[in-house]
Design a protein around this nucleic acid. Structure first.
Lengths: 120, 120
DNA sequence: AATATAAATAGTAATAATTCCTATTACTGT
DNA sequence: ACAGTAATAGGAATTATTACTATTTATATT
């Protein structure tokens, strides 16, 4: 993969926030540095970075969010303020379990827990 | 809520399959019985049925799928054949855990595990 | 059974998220 | 410096979903 300043910027934006941003948020942030950047470029590079394991994509209901944290982890989503918090649910155990019980080779386990966070 | 034959049909379609169908699949199935049914009607009723706890909505990446099984459960998704299988991961324990560790009141826990199923 | 009314529908337009397409641009190896 | 290749911008196209509105229909009331 060749270097591109657009991709570098997109990577830095994702890596510079804990807010689990959407593509649209990243696009708006990127426009401030490269005013003519397009959504196509944002999506293409986010997918590329995800495929290369540089960042991680996950889904909050039906919209994609992007995470600098590529280590396996899970999310708490507050239904009141929308805040998404990283947590760790030891998915290794689940991975073993689905293999033993269902002979299913898990390569990705996503746990999203919604409810009410400790600010409410 | 008033009776409608459209909603009744939609409910029966969802309750008659284990395939975790999309709105579009349900729409096509419904058209065979009520040829002029519209997508708006399908979505409106699926949401209504979900809100009433008659069926359950969940998200497979960025698309909505509908499930007759309203008891809390989880899903295995095969990356080769796309098949989605119901499993049970005892999320009660996770619910306790996030309360103890994070003081987070979980009301919904979604676990989606993707990988390769036992047909491959 | 006829009527009123409130709710649901069909059909379509609008929106939102994402992917696709193509002419153009710009790294990189020679 | 130049050619070849890969990435880009910008916009069109697609897909999923929601919103709007005139019309129809289920149900309660007479």
């Amino acid at each position: 993969m060749r270097f591109s300043k657009q991709r570098e910027l997109i990577q830095h934006i994702v890596q510079g926030t804990n807010s689990h941003p959407t593509a649209y948020w990243i696009f708006n942030k990127a426009k401030k540095k490269i005013s003519n950047i397009s959504m196509g470029t944002v999506y293409r590079n986010l997918n590329k970075l995800n495929n290369d394991g540089v960042i991680k994509i996950f889904y909050d209901n039906n919209i994609a969010r992007y995470d600098w944290n590529t280590v396996a982890h899970d999310h708490l989503k507050c239904n009141k303020c929308g805040k998404i918090t990283d947590i760790n649910m030891h998915t290794k155990e689940l991975q073993k379990k689905v293999w033993n019980q269902y002979k299913f080779e898990a390569d990705n386990i996503e746990i999203t827990i919604s409810g009410i966070c400790n600010n409410h």
